[in-house]
């Protein structure tokens, strides 16, 4: 129940903090997404939110956009609630509206004698949301496919995905939806 409470209230506090930050911050140097010229660089930091069970409800975005290419690291500050962490490394191709991406997710599952590591391939696409505060805050809604290719560690035998039958892989291929709100700083 404590964990659920934390999961519910944490997004609200993060959003309040982000709003305050945006209200007092200087404008971004340039429109970070739609108007970005290939030579422009932007740093992003923000929230990566979701309601499905694949990863924690709130994670932290740290990103860098250079022209049409955006790279993003997503960190998991909610590891303390249950010991699980999910860390993403993602590369987006930023067209004006759609942002297809490929990435990798390392999930650690806490077990009695250590953690099991699950290595996931990520494929998906984001959709640009309206911008706020003169382009300083951008949003993205997206869908993703996460495919667990390998799991290892935790004192258990390593396993790789197999497509021999549905029983072999059906739990290892999962779909999710997320929404991101990032604060952008032009360089």
């Amino acid at each position: 129940m404590l964990e659920k409470h934390t999961a519910r209230t944490a997004p609200a506090w993060f959003l309040v903090a982000l709003f305050v930050l945006c209200a007092w911050a200087p404008p971004a140097a340039a429109d970070p997404i739609e108007g970005a010229a290939p030579s422009e660089h932007t740093l992003q930091a923000g929230l990566n939110l979701r309601t499905d069970f694949g990863v924690h409800a709130v994670r932290i975005d740290l990103g860098w956009t250079s022209g049409r290419l955006a790279t993003l690291v997503v960190l998991d500050p909610m590891f303390w609630t249950d010991g699980q962490t999910s860390t993403d490394l993602v590369a987006f191709w930023m067209t004006d509206s759609f942002h297809p991406y490929v990435g990798w997710r390392l999930t650690t599952i806490p077990l009695l004698d250590g953690a099991q590591f699950q290595q996931n391939l990520l494929l998906g696409t984001g959709l640009a949301l309206p911008q706020f505060f003169d382009g300083r805050v951008t949003g993205q809604w997206g869908i993703e496919l996460a495919m667990m290719l390998v799991k290892h560690g935790g004192g258990l035998p390593a396993e790789t995905i197999s497509f021999a039958s549905g029983r072999h892989y059906i739990d290892l291929v999962n779909f999710g939806m997320y929404v991101r709100f990032d604060y952008n700083v032009g360089l």
Binding site: D52, V55, T107, L172
Partner: peptide
Amino acid sequence: FSLVPETLHAIE
């Protein structure tokens, strides 16, 4: 079939 975060969170 397999232990994945989606299932573990649902169980929890």
